[in-house]
């Protein structure tokens, strides 16, 4: 089904992301509005179509995370945020590939050099995500249970119907506690995560 064209201001996009209302439409809008520009930018900088798609997805994801963490304060436009995230990620990919291609200074990059705050927000968000990687060691089953209880706010009863593998509430409760214990031990093993957690949670939770 083709989506209908919409026009959204920066404020509308940010509000939609923050409230979760019309989030999909906002993301579609960002794709419509900026994908072609980014593709051209990457073509000019030696990238492929696949690079453009990957870099675009990463930038959009990063931007949404920055907005949800409350760091987007309209000090720069969405376009600046997105291009900063893209240029940053493109630089990272090139570095990873052992390339250090020259950027097209006449394009967006020159304009982005003044956006140090934006770059800082984006890098911080990237660091946070990287730090959170340790969480993956908890396993998918634990993730399912913990997300259902703490993120989706489901009751044990609701969880039983979602996870038929658990015979009763007590079994599920035990599983939840075992997962919490495992998570705490992972945090304990990971100093970086421990320090970051304290710092981050003071700000965002």
């Amino acid at each position: 089904m083709k989506k209908k064209k919409i026009h959204l201001s920066d404020l509308q996009v940010v509000k939609a992301i923050q409230s979760g209302d019309k989030l999909d439409e906002s993301i579609w809008y960002l794709y419509d509005r900026y994908y072609e520009e980014l593709e051209l930018f990457l073509f000019k900088n030696g990238g492929t179509k696949q690079d453009a798609e990957d870099v675009f997805q990463e930038g959009i994801t990063r931007f949404i995370k920055v907005v949800l963490s409350g760091k987007f304060r309209f000090e720069a436009t969405i376009k600046t945020y997105l291009f900063t995230a893209w240029v940053n990620h493109w630089g990272y990919l090139n570095k990873k590939r052992g390339k250090d291609k020259e950027r097209d200074e006449n394009y967006y990059y020159g304009n982005l050099q003044s956006s140090k705050t934006v770059l800082k927000d984006i890098e911080e968000s990237e660091r946070e995500e990287l730090t959170l990687k340790f969480f993956d060691n908890i396993g998918d089953k634990c993730k399912d249970v913990l997300y259902a209880f703490y993120y989706q706010g489901l009751s044990y009863k609701e969880m039983i119907s979602r996870f038929p593998g658990y015979s009763d509430e007590q079994v599920l409760r035990n599983k939840k506690h075992a997962c919490i214990k495992k998570l705490k031990s992972l945090v304990k093993e990971n100093n970086k995560a421990k320090n970051w957690l304290k710092k981050l949670l003071l700000k965002t939770v």
Binding site: L23, W28, Q57, K65, L132, F135, Y151, L183, K184, L197
Partner: peptide
């Protein structure tokens, strides 16, 4: 400590949810 752990779980869940939403839209787009 429990408050922090809950915060951590929510943060990770939110991150994964965003990744998943964007990935779906990306695929469709």
């Amino acid at each position: 400590e429990q408050r922090q752990i809950q915060g951590l779980i929510r943060l990770k869940a939110r991150d994964e949810e965003i990744n998943s939403i964007v990935a779906d839209i990306h695929r469709n787009y």
